[in-house]
């Protein structure tokens, strides 16, 4: 076998804080794909809350920290299309007036990937450890879909999960209304949008909803649970890795 790929896991603040299981699922998938995984302990957040609020000075400071923390890896992988998209598409833009930093940011962007597309497109993964007995549906989170073109990759891997039946979600490419700070700044509008999404999720007839971004998942789970739905909500990595011991997002310990 060739040298293992040295992967720095950018775990993302939402996974770090809300759902460590996703981090462990990512590690399992990466290791199964022959990667050596490191989680630099100086990482915090990619800076999107500040960036999307127009606070670019703070964002640049945070981005510098990320660039520094992930210098020494062949690849940087995040279980989130939105945080990976931030690094890939927006970091270089942030430093357009600072050529030295811009070059570093470009270089980092070139080796940064969203988890599932990294597994398929870079590692050539065609089978995964997970097994799942049931019907799931999948929501395409906006940044992953539009900034990184993550669309077929999760579907391809889900198709290899034993026992899993994937049913397409009507309006899968429509935003769930999370939008980072949008969901609290314009809470009423956000709730209206996620209400439509939850109607589509129910209409899919699936018993579980999967997606690749923690923010969207918290939003959709929060709405489904408020409506009393028993649809299980999980990060796609949990299912691919077969790590289903934790109660689903927003579900209690039963």
């Amino acid at each position: 076998m060739s040298e293992p790929k040295r992967v720095g896991l950018f775990v993302t603040c939402l996974v770090d804080l809300f759902r460590p299981s996703v981090g462990f699922a990512a590690v399992r998938l990466l290791e199964a794909a022959g990667c050596e995984v490191t989680v630099p302990s100086v990482q915090t957040c990619c800076g999107q809350p500040a960036y999307n609020s127009g606070d670019s000075a703070d964002t640049r400071d945070i981005a510098r920290g990320v660039v520094r923390a992930f210098r020494d890896f062949d690849y940087v992988v995040a279980p989130s299309g939105s945080c990976a998209g931030m690094i890939v598409k927006h970091y270089p833009e942030l430093f357009r007036d600072d050529p030295a930093m811009a070059a570093e940011a470009e270089e980092l962007a070139g080796r940064t990937h969203e988890l599932v597309s990294f597994l398929t497109d870079v590692c050539g993964v065609t089978s995964v450890p997970g097994k799942y007995d049931g019907t799931v549906t999948y929501h395409d989170s906006c940044s992953g879909l539009r900034e990184l073109k993550v669309k077929q990759q999760p579907r391809a891997l889900l198709a290899t999960v034993d026992g899993l039946d994937l049913r397409e979600l009507p309006g899968a490419e429509t935003c769930c209304g999370f939008g980072g700070t949008f969901c609290v700044k314009y809470a009423d509008v956000s709730v209206e949008i996620v209400g439509r999404k939850s109607a589509d999720i129910r209409a899919s007839g699936a018993d579980a909803l999967l997606a690749g971004d923690m923010g969207c998942l918290l939003n959709m789970a929060g709405r489904l649970k408020r409506e009393g739905s028993d649809i299980e909500v999980r990060h796609v990595a949990e299912v691919l890795a077969g790590m289903l011991n934790q109660p689903a997002i927003g579900d209690g310990q039963s």
């Binding site: 720095g8 775990v11 996974v15 770090d16 804080l17 809300f18 759902r19 460590p20 299981s21 996703v22 981090g23 462990f24 590690v27 050596e36 995984v37 490191t38 989680v39 630099p40 302990s41 990482q43 923390a69 020494d72 969901c183 609290v184 700044k185 809470a187 009423d188 956000s190 709730v191 996620v194 209400g195 918290l218 939003n219 789970a221 929060g222 709405r223 649970k225 408020r226 934790q246 997002i249 927003g250």
Partner: peptide, 29 residues
């Protein structure tokens, strides 16, 4: 309140990933 006006807030698992990873002796670089 902004969040919970029209949806629940899923509770965190309790420990952070990074704390658990360090406790397991995972590579932290």
């Amino acid at each position: 309140g902004g969040w919970t006006g029209g949806r629940d807030l899923p509770a965190p698992e309790g420990r952070t990933f990074q704390a658990m990873w360090a406790a397991r002796g995972g590579r932290t670089g």
